[in-house]
Design a protein around this nucleic acid. Structure first.
Lengths: 146, 146
DNA sequence: AATAATCTCTATAATTTTAGTAGACTTTTA
DNA sequence: TAAAAGTCTACTAAAATTATAGAGATTATT
């Protein structure tokens, strides 16, 4: 049930971008800086941010003084969107996936015990990640610091 | 967040064994039979059942008329035990794992936003899988059939 | 005692996924 | 025009996943 490095790095980067938006008017940071702060290989992060950009979650500006910034406010971006973009479906098995359903081959899906339980697991994960925004994460971090 | 085939096959096999326990006095079935019924490669299933045996979840009997059977009643075996045995920790990242904790490298784990959320995810998954027994699965299947 | 049915154990192979690296290209600002 | 940024695609190395193979060990039956 694990999150890939790609997903982890992407989430960390997005949290950094959310912080940046609070701390500077443009909310812009460079790959290099995120890479250094979070100890993420720069070239790997590059690919990750590009994927997030293609998914419409961040915007970027090229050239001197450029960088990445969130496409929407931290309140409007959920961790679910980020994880799905980078790691694919949240569902443990495809037959309970909302975004990438595929039959699992059992004779009757409606009475498949495994499917029922994994459906619950999927829902539990989705419930958390789809209802946790970047803003909510920052808030919890602040609370923990206090 | 996905379950491996190994985990999936193992869960299906265990559910089959739980059914067998209700349908026959010994509750014993052969690899071959489970393999055929669930369309699981026999040699792969062999390894999986061996792992479950070494974890103490099933027992076996060699020779003619042998096979596998549950080590405890279906009520006493949770899906969490099975998944952990076959797929390892439930936690999405190691720094929130109960069974295989490792530091994730962030400067302060107590105030790491990612860690907090992934801790919630881990708990949600563990709550479901550790509180769902094989008996509960059979019950749900019966209910769905009715 | 022999045979057939079963599980046991370890090695290895094929495939896929993950994680990371490289480099040429484009855009923007100063 | 040079430097600082992102863009895009290809490639590679390592690890994990999903098996397959085959030589044992044990047991029941005849």
């Amino acid at each position: 049930m694990r999150l890939s490095k790609r997903g982890e790095y992407g989430l960390r980067a997005m949290i950094s971008l959310a912080e940046a938006q609070k701390n500077s008017p443009t909310g812009m940071i460079q790959i290099r800086e995120i890479s250094a702060r979070e100890e993420i290989p720069a070239k790997f992060l590059e690919q990750i941010l590009l994927a997030l950009k293609n998914a419409g979650l961040v915007h970027s500006k090229m050239g001197v003084g450029g960088g990445y910034y969130l496409a929407r406010t931290p309140k409007e971006i959920t961790l679910g969107q980020i994880v799905r973009t980078l790691d694919g479906p949240l569902a443990p098995i495809k037959c309970v996936s909302q975004m990438a359903y595929e039959p699992c081959g059992c004779p009757d899906e409606e009475t498949c015990g495994l499917r029922m339980v994994m459906g619950d697991v999927r829902n539990a994960i989705a419930h958390i990640l789809d209802n946790t925004t970047l803003a909510a994460v920052l808030k919890r971090v602040e609370a923990a610091r206090a």
